[in-house]
Design a binder for these strands. Sequence first.
DNA 1: AAGTATATCAACCGCGGGCAA
DNA 2: GTTGCCCGCGGTTGATATACT
Length: 337
Amino acid sequence: MRNPSSTTSTRSKITVPTPCCSKVGIKKGPWTPEEDELLANYVKKEGEGRWRTLPKRAGLARCGKSCRLRWMNYLRPSVKRGHIAPDEEDLILRLHSLLGNRWSLIAGRIPGRTDNEIKNYWNTSLSKKLISQGIDPRTHRPLKPYPDSSEMANVPVQNRNPKSPPVLEENGRVFRTVATRVSENFTAPPNLDENCSQVAANATEYWPNRDGFNMGSLQSGYDQGKTDEDLIEDIGNEDTLSSFLDSLLNDNVFVYQQRQQLQQQNMFGLSSKLVVSSSQILSHGNTWEAQVSPPMAAFGDKAVGGAPSNSLPVLTHQPAPLHVHKENQTDVINGMY
DNA sequence: AAGTATATCAACCGCGGGCAA
DNA sequence: GTTGCCCGCGGTTGATATACT
């Protein structure tokens, strides 16, 4: 053990401030150009890491966390500055629909953007855009037209079940994000090939017609209590996860689209049968070909807080790829999910 | 022009996982 | 197996900028 007398905390609940977090002699607040230069020069010379001791070595009166944050979010050469481009926004929306508030995972797929930047952009801009379009930013589905959902719309996004990925509830069934669903259901075989087809080989039943990337027959790990982060481990490595996400992001039509369309008709009384990506509507609404589908329902369901359910969504028909025609934009927006 | 409201974003904070002793 | 350190993550805060009245 390392110096047991240094603290009496058990790391579970009680947090005793470490020297890194102590307030004594530690500067807070905005960074000065001089501090930036000190930090940047030091990291360029010595490399990242050992953040706890870095401030002292670099001659900075900051805590290690602050130094790390400043480097990661601002000083790192790869950080891209400036406005989020429409294609980046589209990617953020798609990834969020798949991963929920997994900002670091989302940022990892958007070159030059940091988790903090994406998180800020989501909370200040995108979530409001979605709400203004009648879409719940948490679930990426239409805000329900009955009272409780309007109440939900008024709750700040960050206050809603903060660490959970989107959970979609419908008629007593619960649908979750890819991250959740995969991590809860998929246990990778030993020596898993990097190719995603290996993943597909384990998935056959519940996500049909996904070009060899189905996610069924994954009940074995259902009760293992895996976390979303297990996703990467389970699948094997980040390359595989990357391919997996690519598969999801690039797919045109999820299998439950038809059910969604029927739901939309029931909910809004509309004839629209359209599914398009969010930012195509929000940012470049004159792009009309459907590119992305709703989140997670195709992964099946699970009773809330209870034993896994075997009753996965019954999806018997594969809808033809949908193309949106420029007839009625309101219908397009209302029917997007 | 001044005051107020709202939007933006850098930075802080607490928590929890991984790892080593 | 337990404990403590380090690091990274996600939620939140607060200062500043901008828009509005």
